[in-house]
Computed example of a mutant assay.
Amino acid sequence: MTRRIFLCFSSLLTLCWSLSASALKPGEPGFNFTLPSLTQSSKQQRLSDFRGNVVYLDFWASWCGPCRKSLPLLDQLHQQLVDQPFVVLGINLDDDPELGRRFLRELGIQFPNLSDASGSSYDNFGVSGMPTSFLIDQQGIVRWVHQGFTVNDMETIRPRITELLKESQ
């Protein structure tokens, strides 16, 4: 609950501040984690499992208003680029994973999602607001960090992904 209060407060602060000094920055390797799947019981996944793909790593929670808008649009993007070496990977930060599962079912989200009720990946990536996303290249290097979300952000997100996919060809 304390982390939830902090995240709500920090989301408001991100309107005024950029990423904190401890957040992973472009050019740094993404922190490799092992987390349980939010939707497939007993399945564990690591960030390194997706090496060779461009990864849009999205930290979200069921109580996050902007996440309600971003997840369906990211799911559409994931489906549109299904034939490319690209994946949207969500990390749910709800204290109770069932809240995240219900949220995904309600919105009809299909891209892979992991559960991090402890917040360890949140801490390691230096997330300071919700949602926060990291665009990671095929070698596992963070290329771009995006904090917050409005529907118009897709006009920036998709070209960055497309550019990384072209670089890998």
Rank of each mutant, 00 (worst) to 15 (best):
T34Y: 03
T34Q: 13
T34W: 03
L35R: 12
L35E: 04
P36D: 01
S37N: 12
S37P: 03
L38E: 02
T39N: 09
Q40K: 15
S42C: 08
Q44L: 15
R46E: 02
R46F: 00
L47M: 07
S48T: 08
S48Y: 07
S48E: 11
D49C: 08
F50L: 13
R51C: 01
R51K: 14
N53G: 05
V54M: 05
V55W: 01
D58S: 13
F59S: 03
F59D: 01
F59C: 10
F59L: 03
W60L: 09
W60K: 12
A61I: 11
S62Q: 09
S62N: 10
W63Q: 11
C64T: 06
C67L: 10
R68L: 04
R68S: 05
S70V: 02
L71M: 12
L71P: 04
L71Y: 01
P72I: 03
L73K: 13
L74P: 04
L77Y: 01
H78N: 06
Q80C: 00
Q80L: 01
Q80I: 01
V82N: 00
V82K: 05
D83T: 05
D83P: 00
D83M: 05
P85L: 11
P85A: 12
F86D: 04
F86L: 12
V87L: 01
V88Y: 02
L89N: 09
L89D: 04
L93H: 05
D94S: 04
E98N: 14
E98W: 10
E98C: 10
L99K: 15
L99R: 15
L99C: 14
L99N: 15
G100H: 07
R101T: 04
R102A: 12
R102C: 13
R102W: 12
L104D: 02
R105D: 01
E106L: 13
E106Q: 14
G108H: 04
Q110H: 15
F111V: 03
P112N: 07
N113F: 02
N113S: 13
S115N: 09
S115M: 09
D116N: 12
G119D: 05
G119H: 09
N124Q: 15
F125E: 01
V127Y: 01
G129A: 15
G129N: 11
P131D: 06
S133V: 13
F134H: 07
F134G: 07
L135A: 08
I136W: 08
I136Y: 11
D137W: 06
D137G: 10
Q138C: 14
Q138N: 13
G140C: 07
V142I: 14
R143T: 08
W144N: 14
V145F: 03
V145G: 03
